[in-house]
Amino acid sequence: MRRAERRRSPFAWWHEGALLALLVALLGIASVCVPSFLRLENQLLLSRHLWEMAILAIGMTMIVITGGIDLSVGSMMGLCAVTLGMTYAATSSIAAGCLACLAVGIACGALNGLLITRVRVHPLIVTLATMAAFRGVAEGISQGRAYSRFGEPFAVLARGGPGGVPWPGVFFLVMAGIGALILGRTAVGRFLYAIGNNERAARFAGIAVDRVKFGLYTFSGLLAAMATIVYSARFDTAKADAGKGMELDVITAVVVGGTSIFGGRGNLGGTVLGLLLIHETRLFIGRYWKIDELRSIVVGILLIASVLIYRMLARTEDRA
């Protein structure tokens, strides 16, 4: 009950407000330092690096809201990429490749969901295991081979789009809109927050916790497959190392966006702001200082600082 009241209190928007202010400040400084930085076509061109991460972040936000975590998204991308490549090599039909890729993604996510709900082990452990397993299977069956040259119509998927916005971006916006609606306006969304706040209480309140979680991890697998398609189209290559380390980037964005790693708090708006902030920070550092290594230092500090500051504010509010 207290949580619910807090969500309505002005404090709930501090985090988003602070992120937005930070983002505006960063863009302001960037446009002064690098005048061409804010040009729309530049931004759209460079946004390619963002979309896979953004697509994965939708599912990850929901999972973290339930108090879980999915470490296996990057590895699922590896397995999906190998599937896509092998199916394409066997049938030379890109549609078949994409379908197989989606099927494998859903199957991987369902496996995660099954293990988490049936065996009742912490998602961190289950997805740590499947993270190793999916990547290992991808490396094992492909033996390190790379599949490429998927043909022009597939590559256009990453480049073209309506009004300069690439198709992955359009797709992300649609999915994020649906996700925000689910989280904010539907019973399932409230179930997710309830599970994150107190899973046992949610169970006693009659929520089909297992079914919700199973669906959620399966959804995450589906998103991983979609991210793979975007990724493969962008590089025109599918290899077992697709999406390596992606899970950590995605979790960073979700946490910077204000979603509590313990669950029960957060929303997609914050995640989008977190994604943008990290993305723009990286771009700006890359453009201005041209020191790539500085990016991960800043992102690491940003991650810690965002939670640290939030904790401090929460502590003063607790006292009040």
């Binding site: 975590i69 961190l124 950590l248 979790i251 960073t252 946490v255 790693i261 991960s296 230092i297 992102v299 690491g300 500090i301 940003l302 991650l303 810690i304 939670v307």
Partner: peptide, 10 residues
């Protein structure tokens, strides 16, 4: 997990 993830990246 968040703190050490940040330290790891940095």
């Amino acid at each position: 997990i968040v703190a050490t993830l940040g330290v790891m990246t940095a």
